[in-house]
Nucleic acid binder design. Sequence first.
DNA 1: GATCCGTGGAT
DNA 2: TATCCAAGGAT
Length: 330
Amino acid sequence: MQDWYTHQARDLPWRVPPGSNATPDPYRIWLSEVMLQQTTVAAVKAYYAKFTEIWPTVHDLAAAEDAAVMAAWAGLGYYARARNLLKCARAVVTDHDGTFPRTEADLLTLPGVGPYTAAAIAAIAFQQRAVVVDGNVERVMTRLGAITTPLPAAKPEIHALADILTPEDRPGDHAQAVMDLGATICTPKSPACVLCPLRDACAGRKAGIAETLPRKAAKVPKPERRGYVYLAKNGADYLVETRPSKGLLGGMLAFPTSDWSDRPLPAAPFDARWRDAGDVRHTFTHFHLTLKVMATSKRGNPDRGEWTTLDPAALPTVFAKAFRAAFPEP
DNA sequence: GATCCGTGGAT
DNA sequence: TATCCAAGGAT
């Protein structure tokens, strides 16, 4: 594995190349790991570059305004990560003297840092032996060991096998090697087994079931929801609000909306002749949404939100779609 | 253990 | 077009 990684490691902006004498920056390892939670490398790169440019150290990030961080995270999704990112940066500065804790157990106490991320930071940033298990490792281990127990029940078996394979030497490189293997060779569909350094040891391949692993419980279909969204423009100002800090799109900039449900009730923020700007479709993690976009250029006295200039890039994707529907670019 | 929580690319 | 899926965590 290590030998394979030495030559086949992906070149990533947050990564210290294998064999390098450079010391990884725990802040950057942590930032990248949080961004990479359930998110593709391709999507993360631009956000990682932006965050490290604007906030080069944990002190800079801890001192940032909440709204600035939420705006910078807009479009990346899972916005609780951004809220916890700030909480974590402030906890590191306030409770840990500006230095990230070095042990898996201490890392685990930080907001937004769970079992995977704590192990990854301990191994990659601090060269500590930690058993790193993410989706890639789950796939590689279930195939390597021909583990047919469905997830999540298979997690203890997976962790046990990953533990056996984790070395004392260069545990961070080992973890990244397995993840790179999962991302480039041991892929969910059509794995390139002929190129795999573990092909001779792989029980899943031997049994001819590698591609069918890991087994997972059937997913529930997403229900349909509908709603109204209200885009009011007055000169250079738009009527926007900050969503409640918990729940869907929590803490993000938004346009006023109705409830999102089976039979939504119109809920205009003020009386006006609202223009029907068409429908916008968007799919969230657990439901499909169709929003009817209502627009006006009349300034009224809204019952919520405030009039301000707006950078559409600071909006979650569903509201960016609504913006483009109401005010298409020439 | 089950549910909630985004997004965009691949198939 | 519909579904799957990605370096998961909080509750």
